[in-house]
């Protein structure tokens, strides 16, 4: 077993373990931190899958942005209520059972030969350059739409929160 393989399986295990931790944890804040661990391990897996740019975006935007927003949300809601961050569970049995069944089904499908390993070495020289040109050429339309999507999300979030301020609940 060489080092690369070891690192790969290490991060796979970390990701799986932290995801399980989110499911088991009853504390929202701890769950958010475990999501952070999970996101970072996934970023490492991206690097090992020749997707450096996606990995960097994952760390900057996902781990750095989304998670901070979520932690803000946790703090704001817990501050308002003054209650501890404990979370109750409902229909555990049904959820876990359906989760296991779904996983068994998916795993069964994935075993198919169609998803076998590519034997040839993957050559991704200049992937960053390709991504850059893609954004400006083949993916220019989605790029623009993503801009409008961000704008719409901004307007929406602002519309919701500005109303709260004016109402002074």
């Amino acid at each position: 077993m060489n080092t690369l393989t070891f690192i790969f399986y290490f991060f796979m295990l970390t990701a799986a373990a932290s995801a399980t931790g989110i499911l088991l944890s009853r504390n929202v804040f701890k769950a958010a931190l475990m999501l952070l661990v999970c996101l970072l391990s996934i970023a490492a897996l991206y690097v090992l899958s020749f997707a450096e740019f996606v990995a960097i975006t994952q760390i900057l935007v996902y781990a750095g942005g989304v998670l901070v927003v979520i932690i803000f949300g946790i703090m704001l809601t817990s501050k308002l209520s003054g209650k501890p961050l404990q979370v109750g569970h409902t229909n555990i049995f049904a959820a876990v059972l359906s989760g296991i069944l779904l996983f068994a089904l998916l795993a069964n499908f994935i075993t198919d030969d169609v998803f076998a390993v590519p034997q040839h070495a993957v050559e991704t020289q200049g992937a960053l350059q390709t991504i850059g040109t893609n954004f400006m050429t083949a993916y220019s339309l989605p790029f623009e739409i993503a801009g409008i999507l961000l704008l719409a999300a901004l307007i929406g979030a602002a519309a919701i929160t500005s109303f709260m301020k004016s109402k002074k609940v």
């Binding site: 993916y139 989605p142 739409i145 409008i148 999507l149 719409a152 999300a153 929406g156 919701i160």
Partner: peptide, 22 residues
Amino acid sequence: LMIFLSLELISLSSYVLAGYSF
């Protein structure tokens, strides 16, 4: 990708619109 993005554009805006009675 276009389906995903435009569906999200519709959804995110509708989430806000649905709460417009405040």
